[in-house]
Design a protein around this nucleic acid. Structure first.
Lengths: 201, 201
DNA sequence: AAGAATCTGTAGCGATCGCTACAGATTGGA
DNA sequence: TCCAATCTGTAGCGATCGCTACAGATTCTT
């Protein structure tokens, strides 16, 4: 491998490799040694290209949201009704969380679950992102209530928290080995309590 | 503190202190130093009384199930119908997961979410316990289907996985700051899709 | 009364952690 | 052509990790 001149490793491929390791083991369960082995670079290259472990992790989370977890942002961007959005979020989780060609579940939910006090900021960052998603969903549901799409007595916060809880539970079940078929069944059951049923295509 | 003779620290109180630290930070996020500070003993006392970090963690999990998480075992032991059992499990989670006088959520769900390969057995142990709970619930639901309590076309595995996913999601939401009132709302929504509604007392 | 057993505190072990100093070596610009 | 800039590899830093050797000191048994 070259020892000078333009960077010779594929930064994007290295970042994807780091994503898989953090996704499986979490921030606290992943060492620099594991990362450099997976990324096929040495520590000084990791630090030169990414900053430090925490900066790399932040970039990994951004990348995850732009790739593997993109179905959520797409659902928010493309669905115009709360019912369509929620259906797509839940069934998207069912479809993606146990695909088998990457670690199961969701990185944003799982990767900072256990941290020491010295790494608390990592956990807080991911909690903030999850809560921002729930708040966005709550806003969409509140809009649907205001527009008459959902019943006036529906509770936006409760519904948003329920949907997020179901998705987070599906992530955990996927990590516990549950397959896509069962996750889809869970998704369908979860949607049975939705105030209005989506029109079948 | 005495330096000989009968053990002078309260083993049970020390174990409870360790439970709280593992519950909040998880196995990988908790150091021996944090444990000995919380338990108010020195490392040799910890090792003499509990074995090693992993053995202590196993004992902590047993203690958690016998105390804070006891509502689940009680529900299995005392409810005679699947509908009563599921209602009690979900509403018990809502009631207990955000009490405020201990870390939020469920230790069995959260405390081994991130581990390095060298600690994989810790994660496997907790996953096995969670899956054993889901399997037990599936058995109870299957029995209810056989006995006619639930419709013949109900899917025991799907229902059990749904219930466990909801409980796990509620644990994660509690850890993300959601309060008991909202968790109860989520529990009630989750139960709306149950094949039969419980008779109100 | 004395000694064995036991519990505890102090100090520190070897290993691993996140990270970096420094040198090798290539590329590109002056 | 030469030198600055940059990337990389090797070796290893200080700190922290899980854990323990050893000594202090009390209790209990003989």
């Amino acid at each position: 491998m070259a020892r000078s001149g333009p960077r010779t490793f594929d930064r994007d491929a290295a970042l994807e490799a780091a994503t898989l390791v953090f996704w499986e083991h979490g921030y606290a369960g992943t060492s620099i040694s594991q990362l450099t082995t997976a990324m096929n670079i040495n520590p000084p290259s990791l630090y030169a290209a990414f900053g430090d472990k925490r900066a790399l992790f932040t970039e990994v989370v951004d990348r995850y949201n732009a790739t593997h977890g993109r179905f959520m942002a797409d659902a928010f961007a493309e669905e115009t009704t709360a019912t369509g959005l929620v259906t797509r979020l839940i069934m998207g989780a069912a479809e993606h969380y146990a695909e088998g060609n990457h670690p199961p579940g969701c990185l944003v939910i799982a990767a900072a679950a256990n941290n020491s006090p010295s790494n608390a900021e990592v956990s807080i960052d991911l909690a903030d992102r999850r809560n921002a998603n729930r708040d966005l969903l709550q806003t969409r549901i509140a809009d649907a209530i205001s527009s008459g799409e959902l019943p006036a007595d529906a509770d936006a916060r409760g519904l948003a928290t329920y949907v997020v809880a179901v998705i987070q539970g599906m992530s955990q079940q996927a990590r516990d080995g549950v397959n896509t078929e069962t996750l889809k069944m869970v998704g369908e059951m979860a949607l049975r309590m939705w105030p209005v049923q989506p029109v079948s295509a």
